[in-house]
């Protein structure tokens, strides 16, 4: 929806800088610019911002090998996890307990990451679904549809937060249990 509080000629000033103006609009703009110093000033201000951002964008240099590192990480995801073995009988229980702590810590961390990753993807998929509905059924009230999807996203956020809190509680209890087992294993028999 076009914001009515923005002067239509100011909108055209911006559209021209962005290369989004039609020849008819450009002619109208030229006439307005000749008569209105405020529009000339606006054009200059927008031009300054645009130039600044263009220079900033050009100064960004993606690091070499970025794509290779991403592909490598993705391929490692499919690789089987290594298993560490110990032959020392005395250290075996402690090493096992320590490994368990590390493993659970890592799975807790990865679990949280994966939950957050799924939430992001779910959000993006919902946005895709909303676009699809609008494309297939342009007669649908777009604002009402947007509210519906927004409400769904809010509900999903609440579920997500609750789930994360529940996971933290469960994993916290597990950690305490593990510590108790380690202490028990340390005690002389």
């Amino acid at each position: 929806m076009t914001d009515p509080s923005i002067d239509p000629m100011a909108r055209l000033v911006q559209a021209r800088l962005d290369g989004e103006i039609t020849p008819e609009e450009e002619r109208a703009l030229e006439q307005a610019l000749a008569a209105r110093p405020d529009l000339q000033d606006l054009e200059q201000r927008l031009r300054d911002v645009k130039r600044h951002l263009e220079q900033d964008r050009r100064s960004i240099r993606p690091p070499l090998g970025l794509a290779q590192r991403i592909v490598q990480r993705a391929s490692q995801e499919d690789a089987p996890a290594a298993v560490v073995r110990s032959s020392n009988r005395f250290w075996r229980p402690l090493a096992a307990a320590a490994a368990l702590v590390l493993l659970l810590g890592a799975s807790f961390y990865l679990g949280r990451e994966s939950t957050s990753a799924e939430a992001d993807v779910e959000r993006s998929s919902l946005q895709e679904r909303e676009i699809d509905v609008l494309r297939r059924h342009p007669e649908v009230d777009a604002a009402a549809l947007k509210s519906l999807f927004d409400a769904t996203l809010r509900e999903l956020d609440v579920i997500e937060r609750r789930r994360a809190a529940d996971r933290r509680d469960v994993m916290g209890r597990l950690e305490l249990g593990i510590q108790a087992l380690i202490r028990k294993a340390d005690r002389p028999r």
Binding site: I70, R73, A74, E77, S114, A117, E118, D120, V121, E122, S124, S125, E128, R129, I131, D132, R135
Partner: peptide
């Protein structure tokens, strides 16, 4: 970002 995309390619339904 790419890790999420890699893991969830099946969630991309091709509507856009």
């Amino acid at each position: 970002i790419f890790f999420k995309v890699y893991r969830k390619l099946s969630a991309f339904q091709g509507r856009s």
